[in-house]
Amino acid sequence: MSDLPKLPIRFLLSDMDGTLLLPDHTLSQRTIDAVRSLREAGVLFSLATGRPPKAMLQQIEALGVDLPTAAFNGGTIVKPDGSLLAAHYLPATTALIALALFADQPDVEVWVFSGGDWLLKDPHGPMVPREQHGLGYPPVVVESFEPYLERIDKIVATSNNTELLIELEAQLLPKVNGMAQVSRSQPVYLDVTALEANKGTALTTIAEYLGVPLEQTAAIGDGGNDPAMFKCAGLSIAMGQAEEAVKRQADVVTAANTEDGVAQAIEKFILPR
């Protein structure tokens, strides 16, 4: 952890699942009120998540977000009018490497996100109900992922066997080094996205669009895909329930998402300044 920056924060970029949202994927009233207070104080606020764009709409409306938002870990940055500020697709050759590795794992479900759709081969996988509840829409069942190789936003390997996902992450990283981002957005999700599709690039792109220097930005998150934006932000905040490896890369640590950690961080680290 480092000393807190002296400049006031003008823009906060927040992760969603495990950060802004409670475990049941809802927003607490305290969090909604804290974001409103932030905006009333003139501090800009937006979202960066591994979710697809259309799985962010309810939260965007509830929080009154009127800035570009980052989906697919920064792979797609969408302006408020629905137009794209940036889009980064996973190279087809890299996608095939990841899909081949995951295909040999009977305890792993494999999902592909392309063109706004959530694609899978087995609609009865044990992780499907959880994802459908979180996204708010059902998957599209396909026989093969090959027709979608040229426009893949994200590949997800998911399993309740978190140790297996850690092993797969270690196996995949050297295979796609310099070609893709590989990170566990949550303990049960291993995400594979384009090299440029990371939350650090997303923070940099949105801050530049808004005309805010990086030293006056803040980022808050809990997952393995969040330190990328921690490294770019003037102030980085980890959630209380985050893994120790994530906490070590943040300037400060707030409470868990079940304890309104985002609201506490806004009240303690941003608004007073």
Rank of each mutant, 00 (worst) to 15 (best):
Q29Y: 15
R30K: 15
T31I: 14
T31M: 12
I32N: 13
L38Q: 10
L38W: 09
E40I: 13
A41P: 13
G42V: 07
G42Q: 04
V43H: 08
V43R: 05
S46R: 00
G50Y: 03
P53S: 11
P53N: 10
K54D: 12
K54S: 13
A55N: 00
A55Q: 00
A55L: 03
M56R: 00
Q58D: 13
Q59E: 07
Q59H: 13
I60L: 10
E61A: 14
E61H: 13
A62S: 15
L63V: 12
L63M: 11
L63C: 11
L63Y: 05
L63P: 10
L63E: 07
V65C: 12
D66Q: 10
T69C: 04
T69D: 01
A70L: 07
F72A: 00
G74T: 00
G75C: 12
T76F: 04
V78D: 01
P80N: 05
D81C: 03
G82R: 02
G82F: 06
L84G: 04
L84P: 05
L85D: 00
A86L: 10
A86E: 06
A86M: 08
A87D: 01
H88Q: 10
L90M: 07
L90A: 08
A92W: 09
T93V: 05
T94M: 09
A95F: 03
I97P: 00
L99W: 06
L99I: 12
A100P: 02
L101H: 04
F102R: 03
A103T: 03
D104E: 12
Q105F: 01
E109A: 13
W111N: 03
V112E: 03
V112L: 11
F113R: 08
F113E: 01
S114W: 11
S114N: 14
D117C: 14
W118A: 06
W118D: 07
L120G: 05
K121R: 15
D122S: 10
D122Y: 06
M127G: 01
R130H: 08
R130E: 05
R130K: 14
Q132W: 06
H133V: 05
G134R: 00
L135V: 05
L135Y: 05
G136D: 02
